[in-house]
Structure formats: structure tokens, C-alpha cells
């Protein structure tokens, strides 16, 4: 678990049968992905079948936690508790394994974020036994 004090709202996820392995791994500080045993497709977000070949034979594995910024925005006006923490950064990070995942870029000046910037995963404790994967500039 990161020592960083999360400034952003860090709300618990609602794991279901598909997604619980992802959130169990995140709670242990691992970014888990599914891989299709039949066609090698890496899958995002969690589901029961491979969207490329309809196979149900999927295997969880640990991703590197490394990626690059695909796109991002600095949010200046938001809703609810998020309005109190502006400006903050919402981004799509392209993982080294391929998928582009929505997240926050944290622990940096928002103006320091740029497309293609390398990033590294950190985990923010939600306080209920779960953790959210966010990213810092590498």
C-alpha cells in the first residue's frame, strides 16, 4: 500500500462475480488483468468471456503496473466531493500490456502531466479493505 495520503475522494468499489479478483488483487497492491487462454487477448475491464473469441477460459495474471498517458484532462469544476479537490487529473493510461484504463494521475502538479508521459501505479486505500489503482509520473 502506498504511503501517500490520498487527497482525492477514495470510494470503495462494488465488486461483482466478474470483478472481485481484480479488486482482491488491488487490495494487495497488484494490478491484475485477464488473459484469454485461447486467443491470447488481454482483457479490460473484467468479464466472464473473451470479447475477441467468446472463450470462457480466462486466466488472471499480474500486470507490470507501468504505462503511458493516452489522454488526460485537468478538472476545474466537478460534482459532489470532487469539487473540493479541484484541480485534479482524470486520465486514460495505456498499460504496457495494452489496455487503456481510466484513472487519476496523482502526486504531481497537474500541469506536469502530458500525453505519452510514463506513469507507474500506486494504490490508495479506501478504508473498507479495498484499494483504488491510481498512477504517478514515473
Amino acid at each position: 500500500m502506498s504511503d501517500d495520503t490520498p487527497a482525492l475522494p477514495t470510494n470503495a468499489p462494488h465488486p461483482n462475480e466478474d470483478s472481485k479478483p481484480f479488486w482482491d488483487a488491488a487490495a494487495e497492491g497488484r494490478f491484475a488483468l485477464q488473459h484469454c487462454d485461447d486467443c491470447d487477448t488481454v482483457i479490460w475491464w473484467p468479464r466472464a468471456l473473451c470479447p475477441a473469441c467468446s472463450s470462457f477460459d480466462l486466466t488472471w495474471y499480474d500486470a507490470s503496473g507501468n504505462g503511458r498517458v493516452y489522454s488526460y484532462t485537468v478538472v476545474h469544476r466537478s460534482v459532489g466531493g470532487w469539487n473540493a479537490v479541484t484541480p485534479y487529473v482524470v486520465a486514460y493510461v495505456e498499460l504496457d500490456e495494452g489496455p487503456r484504463v481510466m484513472t487519476n494521475i496523482v502526486d504531481c502538479d497537474p500541469d506536469a502531466v502530458s500525453i505519452d508521459a510514463p506513469v507507474r501505479v500506486v494504490f490508495h486505500d479506501t478504508g473498507e479493505g479495498w484499494a483504488l489503482p491510481r498512477f504517478t509520473l514515473a
Binding site: W45, S71, V85, M102
Partner: peptide
């Protein structure tokens, strides 16, 4: 909240505007 993508898109302070802003940013890039 019942959508399969919900936890992967709703926990990051993403608003309607910020989602479109990311599209604009990438188009600019």
C-alpha cells in the same frame, strides 16, 4: 451503478465534461 464498467469509470471523478475533454485533448494531440 449496475453497469459492468461502473467501478472502472465512476471512481475517478470523471464527469461528462471531463470525458469529452479527454477526447478533445487526444484530438488536439
Amino acid at each position: 451503478s449496475s453497469a459492468p464498467e461502473a467501478d472502472f469509470e465512476n471512481l475517478w471523478g470523471n464527469t461528462v465534461v471531463s470525458a469529452y475533454a479527454m477526447a478533445a485533448r487526444r484530438h488536439m494531440h
